[in-house]
Design a protein around this nucleic acid. Structure first.
Length: 426
RNA sequence: GGUGAGAUGGCUGAGUGGUCGAAAGCACCGGUCUUGAAAACCGGCGAGGGUUUAUAGCCCUCCUAGAGUUCAAAUCUCUAUCUCACCGCCA
């Protein structure tokens, strides 16, 4: 949610900034609504003020033992007027809110202009893709052959398409990856390890921006009167920890990491990445979240992106880092770095982490604030998060990059302690 | 699942229909005192919104949330959520 004042003070400039990301703001409509809002709001408050004074005078008249009948009639009429004004006000405010809640965040100046993902700018490339002297197989062929270490038929039987089952050493390596990441971030990068709910309420989803606009991307449950949704990322529970809080400035920055399953409906992605582990309804992810002071958010984003890169480097997986252009960046984000890992079977780099700064966009929705000791004011925090990393996709990358001619998979050195010293899966 | 008790400002905690945005204490901020600090004393101190050049005034809203009764609700009624206690069940 953007600051509503941006639409009052200089709506044309705001529209210009939004146009950068291809969002067309209906300025005429908003300007009209804004005029209506101002008029009706002033009128409503005026009526409320009158009613308050009159009501008080009734109390005083009564205390003096005077006849209050004439006063009662007068206030009754006021009440009717007020009721009507309130109805009108609610409608106008709702219309404005409907528009504003669909307006994306403003993009940071440093973000490159572009139309689509083709215009994202690569800013870093690490590692050299390995040369293979045999025919490269993809993770599905390798994993399925290894005693059904990856089993998509079983996943389909149990749940449906886009679900999978892992067995034996593959399942163990999946677990090892998550634990390895969690350990590095909590022990070397200064994040507090967290355990959080996988089902959250709608307030939480609104806070981080999944609702109201992206509800169809989620799995929802309803039990009696309780409405929960499965988290699409640990960003939701972790970030909402500061919702409706005034955080102590001394506690900033707050750095948290959690390993959770994530659930996404993948509505609208029929036919895409239908093979393998790349796009599943359920996948594991290690997520980092930072809650920071406004002036620190860009630095925090770069730092956090570096933390995600560290994992890939320790696993010795070649990757590149790109800045998402104005046409590809997410709704709530002000700047995003994607990490893309090399997948030999696809002969390309594929997204494995997405790190974003949201400025105060999420914080405003959440009313997540701190008291600034310099200005003495209560101010909105900034939120930053990123995957460090998507565990399922990391498993894919390890299987494909570490595959051997005989169909076995070498275990990355840093993972071996997590697998009882196992060096090769066959 | 059953029964009962609760939910008030950063925290603790008064307040049962009108003068309550709300006592008091703590915390915090400013001052006096002090070589400095502490203590003591004096003063200030909730949030959101509107209007406005204004973080000046003025006004509106907010005592978990939502509905209701009333001229008037922190206070009365209903519903929901959450917390605590005891019982039952359970990984």
């Amino acid at each position: 949610m953007l600051d509503p004042k941006l639409f009052r003070i200089d709506i044309e400039k705001t529209a210009e900034l939004l146009a950068k990301r291809g969002f067309k703001l209906n300025t005429e409509q908003l300007t009209v609504l804004e005029e209506q809002r101002k008029a009706i709001q002033i009128k409503t408050q005026e009526l409320q003020s009158q009613r308050n004074t009159r009501s008080k005078s009734i109390g005083q008249a009564k205390a003096r033992g005077e006849d209050i009948q004439p006063l009662l009639a007068e206030v009754s009429q006021l009440g009717d007027d007020l009721e009507a004004a309130k109805v009108e006000q609610t409608q106008v405010l709702q219309s404005i809110d409907d528009i504003l809640s669909a307006v994306p965040n403003l993009i940071h100046d440093s973000v490159p202009q572009g139309e689509s993902e083709d215009d994202n700018v690569e800013i870093k490339r690490w590692g050299t893709p390995r040369e293979f002297d045999f025919e490269v197989k993809d993770h599905v062929d390798i994993g399925t052959a290894l005693d059904k270490g990856l089993d998509f038929e079983a996943g389909a039987k149990l749940a449906g398409t886009r679900f999978s089952v892992m067995r034996g050493p593959i399942a163990k390596m999946h677990r090892a990856l998550a634990q390895f990441m969690l350990d590095i971030h909590s022990e070397e990068h200064g994040y507090q390890e967290m355990y959080v709910p996988y089902l959250v309420n709608h307030n939480s989803l609104f806070g981080t921006g999944q609702l109201p606009k992206f509800g169809e991307d989620l799995f929802h449950t309803e039990l009696a009167n309780k409405k929960f949704s499965l988290i699409p990322t640990a960003e939701v529970p972790l970030t909402n920890l500061v919702r409706d809080e005034i955080v102590d400035e001394a506690d900033l920055p707050i750095k948290m990491v959690a390993h959770t399953p994530c659930f996404r409906s993948e509505a609208g992605s029929y036919g895409r990445d239908i093979r393998g582990l790349i796009r599943q309804h359920q996948f594991d992810k290690v997520e980092m979240v930072q809650i920071v002071k406004p002036e620190d958010s860009l630095t925090a984003l770069e730092q956090l992106t570096g933390h995600a890169e560290t994992i890939l480097e320790k696993l010795e997986l070649p990757y590149r880092t790109v800045v998402l252009c104005t046409g590809d960046i997410g709704f709530s984000s002000t700047k995003t770095f994607d990490l893309e890992v090399w997948l030999p079977a696809q002969n390309t780099y594929r997204e494995i982490s997405s790190c974003s700064s949201f400025g105060d966009f999420q914080a405003r929705r959440m009313q997540a604030r701190f008291r600034n000791s310099e200005t003495k004011n209560i101010e909105l925090l900034h939120t930053v998060n990123g995957s460090g990393l998507a565990v399922g996709r990391t498993l894919v990358a390890v299987i494909e990059n570490y595959q051997q001619a005989d169909g076995s998979i070498n275990v990355p050195t840093v993972l071996q302690p997590y697998m009882k010293g196992l060096t090769n899966i066959k």
